[in-house]
Write a protein that binds this DNA or RNA. Structure first.
Length: 493
RNA sequence: GCGCCUUUAGCUCAGCUAGGUAGAGCAACUGACUCUUAAUCAGUGGGUCGGGGGUUCGAUUCCCUCAAGGCGCACCA
């Protein structure tokens, strides 16, 4: 970028010329009084005659998005955070000097306008400028008006430009904000307290994943960016918070894909005196509440499929789903040797991992993509669930569910293990797995055991991927479309 | 990490499988134009064709390599 392109050079020279004329390129003394959407809302239905009687002056500001000039008069479109509005600038009205300066402005510049409304011959509500002045000079041209900015890499690297020219993008992030707010309100309405727990943890826990490692200079210790808040939130149950939740970032040092960004937003909530059975209808209520808010109903259109969120949602036990949805034989699912053999035929290593891993792998491959309609899968194997409470009737299983919508995991909930001795055993198994080379296995967390020894009330907890929830409601297939600044490699010349 | 694809003007794209040192639309610049809206009309400029190397008399085009991005696979939520 050492050689300045012609377009940039012209822009800069133009700005310098304006400055030489005494125009402040970056003033901050203009006070906005009106927003464009409000002006539009006020007059949209008003007849031309009534409009002509309207003498009120509006004071608004925004970015110039287009410009059509006719010598002594010019139409521009102004865009503020609420809407777009046409502004008509006439030399006879604003005066010779002001018009001369205005003519040197560019698409992309921020301007302040005072004026009154009228309707053009073609019927568009328009502001006739009494005054128009520069608020911020733009030195780089916006992408073209018709195609906008399409290049995906540029859109993510320069999200600010993407947001200026692609209105649909802005809508996605407004939807995202509404979803998060709705979830917060839903939980608070149900007596949950929102908290924040450490993002930097000496022992990363609460999930099976590889963490990012960092170093604190003053303390002289290694810290990990959290892979989950789970163990801290459950310490809060010990401390007496009976209903808590956190919506915040998790960090996992793993591959990037359409569904994975190294940092992503997770909701986790914990409720004392509840079981995983209680959380399923609660989850239905929560997601339906979001659907009402951002979708206006329970019928969702996702990538051409219609998804019906009307509760109650279908439930399968894991093994049941492998048979009914995955097409395995009943005899096969109950026979470890046959299962391992089946795994081999699907390129899953069948001999090494525990049976539980084999089962969930088979599930991921054979069942998950087919679960378009909301479906709870329950009764997970113990050895893939080191923090879940054991099932009373079958100690090889845990009281856990995962929720799938549109072929993707949306949530994971379980009755919490609160027996410190059992938890310690599970950690020890994880530590053994880690020593055997499983980089994702849990670390031993002595303090967490100590906390459980003080007594954690019986509880159930759940995690929900917020980014994926947004993807679902915004009908998008890439997680990068719902994260403002997705992770990319640094740009190089 | 592996495979396939992409990278040409500020933006969106042609040109590449006959190798002869680049073209369109929008944007920009000059001029005309006081109800236009992808305004119009006349004129003008703008590119080391992602970086490096090779083959060739000659490379945007063919080959190698590096980089970034996209998609698929793997890992995971």
């Amino acid at each position: 970028m050492s050689e300045e392109s012609q377009v940039l050079r012209q822009r800069r020279q133009k700005a310098e010329a304006l400055r030489d004329e005494g125009v402040d390129l970056y003033p901050n003394d203009f006070r906005v009084q009106d927003r464009l959407a409000d002006i539009k809302a006020r007059y949209d239905d008003l007849a031309d005659e009534a409009l002509a009687q309207e003498e009120r002056t509006y004071v608004c500001a925004g970015r110039i998005m287009s410009m059509r000039s006719f010598g002594r008069a010019t139409f521009i479109h102004l865009k503020d955070t609420t809407d777009k509005l046409q502004v008509y600038v006439k030399r006879d009205v604003v005066g010779r000097d002001e018009y001369r300066v205005f003519r040197k402005l560019d698409i992309g510049d921020w301007v302040g306008v005072k004026g009154n409304v009228f309707r053009t011959r073609t019927g568009e509500l328009t502001l006739l400028a009494q005054e128009i002045r520069l608020l911020t000079k733009s030195l780089r041209p916006l992408p073209e008006k018709f195609h906008g900015l399409r290049d995906i890499e540029s859109r993510y690297r320069q999200r600010y430009v993407d947001l200026v020219v692609n209105d649909a993008v802005r809508e996605i992030f407004i939807t995202r904000a509404r979803i998060i707010q709705n979830v917060q309100e839903f939980l608070k309405g149900n007596g949950f307290v929102e908290v924040e727990t450490p993002m930097m943890q000496p022992i990363p826990g609460g999930a099976t994943a590889r963490p990012f490692k960092t170093f604190h200079n003053a303390l002289g210790i290694e810290l990990y960016l959290r892979i989950a808040p789970e163990l801290y939130l459950k310490r809060l149950l010990v401390g007496g918070f009976e209903r808590v939740f956190e919506i915040n970032r998790n960090f996992r040092n793993e591959g990037i894909s359409l569904q994975h960004n190294p940092e992503f937003t997770m909701l986790e909530f914990y409720r004392a005196y509840a079981t995983f059975e209680d959380l399923m209808p609660f989850t239905e209520d929560m997601i339906c509440s979001v659907a009402d808010e951002v979708n206006g109903g329970l019928q969702l259109s996702y990538q051409g499929d219609t998804i019906d969120l009307t509760p109650p949602w279908r439930r399968y036990r894991l093994k049941e789903a492998l048979i009914t949805v995955g097409g395995l034989e009943e005899s096969e699912v109950e026979d470890e040797r046959k299962l391992r053999a089946r795994a081999e035929t699907l390129d899953i290593p069948g001999s090494g991992p525990e049976l539980g891993k084999i089962l969930t792998k088979l599930f991921d491959l054979l069942v998950e993509p087919k679960l378009k309609q909301p479906t709870f899968i329950t009764h997970y194997p113990l050895d893939v669930s080191p923090l879940s409470r054991r099932n009373k009737d079958d100690p090889s299983l845990v009281d856990r569910f995962e929720l799938f919508i549109a072929g993707r995991e949306i949530a994971n909930g379980f009755s919490e293990l609160n027996d410190p001795a059992d938890q310690k055993e599970r950690f020890l198994q994880q530590v053994a797995a880690r020593e055997a080379g499983d980089e994702e296995a849990h670390f031993m967390d002595e303090d967490y055991i100590r906390a459980l020894e003080y007594g954690m009330p019986p509880a159930a907890g759940e995690g929900m991927g917020i980014d994926r929830l947004v993807m679902l409601f915004a009908d998008l297939t890439s997680i990068r479309e719902v994260i403002l600044f997705p992770q990319l490699r640094p740009e190089r010349d």
